[in-house]
Design a protein around this nucleic acid. Structure first.
Lengths: 112, 112
DNA sequence: AAATTATGTCGTATGTTTGCGACATAATTT
DNA sequence: AAATTATGTCGCAAACATACGACATAATTT
């Protein structure tokens, strides 16, 4: 079977879908939330916060990195993660725009 | 292997993740966007808007329904879909809250 | 009553995600 | 140089998502 017809949609829709996909797991939201409030963002500290195995958390971190939502900086043996504020603001703005667009009452009669 | 450890996270995180999952496919965002602007929301009309087969669109509609983002009302042979504005506003408010929380600059020094 | 129309559901193929343990690597300490 | 520490990556298994055609059903038209 041919698969994933994402290319059939506008790049804006694809982009929003990608952002939402990155946010579609509680562990990843928990990581972002944690990073937004803590001073230290050493990988090991994040792992302690998340009720999953170290390798699974590492995987989620890589996904957030791939989505450009976080950055990692090597510091000796440790790796220090933090939010990519600039990209996050840009992405969240786009997401917010469409959320408002969708949740604004339309002018036509509703059927239900 | 045991699977899906969602239960290990707070219900708030789970709820946000669920909303994002519903929005994580371009076809579903396109459907919501379409419903927010059109006067008619007959299932067949939606299907014409989306570049996927009828049965696949139907599947996406069921998922949006399961996530409570849309409602369907039978009208003879046809089915009329519309946004569940109330739930959408509630959910999007929750989502927006966390987006602001995450994207707000924190008060601590950043490591990268 | 047969044909048509609108829509949902099932079965199937395939791709993707989640989760873990085991192994690899590279910096630091002993 | 060996041990320890922090972290990433691989390989696997199970679950889930995507996509489609074929079939089922129920209302409407002929």
């Amino acid at each position: 079977m041919t698969y994933s017809k994402n290319h059939a949609f506008s790049s804006e829709l694809q982009e929003i879908a990608t952002i939402c996909k990155a946010l579609s797991h509680p562990a990843r939201i928990a990581i972002l939330k944690h990073l937004s409030t803590c001073s230290s963002c050493i990988s090991g500290d994040i792992t302690k916060e998340i009720p999953l195995s170290r390798s699974t958390v590492s995987q989620h971190l890589q996904e957030l990195k791939k989505a450009n939502l976080i950055e990692g900086e090597i510091d000796g043996v440790k790796i220090c993660y933090c939010l990519n504020s600039k990209i996050i603001k840009k992405h969240f703005g786009l997401l917010n725009k469409i959320l408002i667009e969708i949740s604004t009452e339309n002018k036509f009669t509703k059927c239900c």
